[in-house]
Design a protein around this nucleic acid. Structure first.
Length: 232
DNA sequence: GGTACGATTGTCT
DNA sequence: GACAATCGTACCT
């Protein structure tokens, strides 16, 4: 039987959990079969003190599972289109979580490919789960899985520690870190929280895209320059 | 009650 | 590289 993790594993600083999630395997079981994903890229979100976190403005109906005990999923819908999944860590009452950004499908490739094909195109195996929304599709994670546990060896999801991380020093050297993707905020928040971690050289890691101000439906950007400023 | 916007992705040029 | 899709949530009036 595959052994999972103890809950205390998640009751640590979010960056420690994020680092150790790299190389770990997330197992997703469904009636159609099982998909195993080796995690290659994550982002850490440190709860209410992190301006990039969904929990920054406090608890709400959407982010309630972020405030739950460690070792469960926080799943949310983004832009009404995509589903993203986080691993909740730390102790109840806090709200830190690790966003799963990318991974390598190591088992159940056919099922993952079928899921991704139904949702769009897949041009190469490395793109099966290269991106937070792609990853959830490949694993069959839906908003209904919000709050699902990751510790039960017989449950729908199981997180298995990565064998390559037991060595410690060697594994740490293979981990790179940088600013989080698509997280802007005042004063270059991405630079203040360089909490995107990935396995160096892994081709399943998603492409870095800096945060850009979005044009709203009315044709204005959020910090629209005045006509006077535009002339300068 | 109304409005702005987002931890993204796929398509089109 | 630019842009549209699409809807739940938070914030404002």
């Amino acid at each position: 039987m595959t052994r999972g993790l103890e809950r205390v594993w998640f009751e640590r600083p979010v960056l420690d959990v994020a680092r150790d999630l790299l190389g770990a395997t997330l197992v997703s079981r469904a009636p159609g079969g099982e998909v195993r994903l080796r995690i290659t890229e994550v982002e850490a979100y440190d709860g209410e003190r992190d301006p990039g976190s969904h929990a920054f403005r406090g608890r709400s109906r959407r982010n309630a599972s972020m405030f739950g005990p460690g070792g469960q999923l926080y799943v949310y819908r983004h832009l009404g289109l995509h589903t993203c999944a986080n691993v909740v860590c730390a102790v109840p009452g806090t709200a830190s979580a690790v966003l799963l950004r990318a991974g390598e499908v190591t088992s159940g490739t056919e099922l993952a490919t079928a899921r991704r094909s139904a949702a769009g195109k897949v041009s190469r195996p490395a793109e099966l789960a290269s991106g937070p929304a792609r990853l959830t599709v490949a694993l069959g994670i839906t908003p209904a899985d919000d709050g699902a546990g990751l510790l039960d060896p017989d449950g729908r999801f199981l997180l298995v520690p990565g064998s390559g991380l037991k060595a410690g020093a060697g594994a740490a050297a293979a981990i790179e870190r940088g600013p989080r993707v698509g997280v802007g905020g005042p004063g270059g928040e991405g630079e203040l929280f360089p909490w995107r971690l990935w396995l160096s050289g892994d081709d399943t890691v998603s492409r870095y895209r800096p945060a850009v101000p979005r044009r709203s439906r009315t044709g204005q950007t959020r910090a629209a320059p005045t006509p006077t400023e535009e002339q300068q």
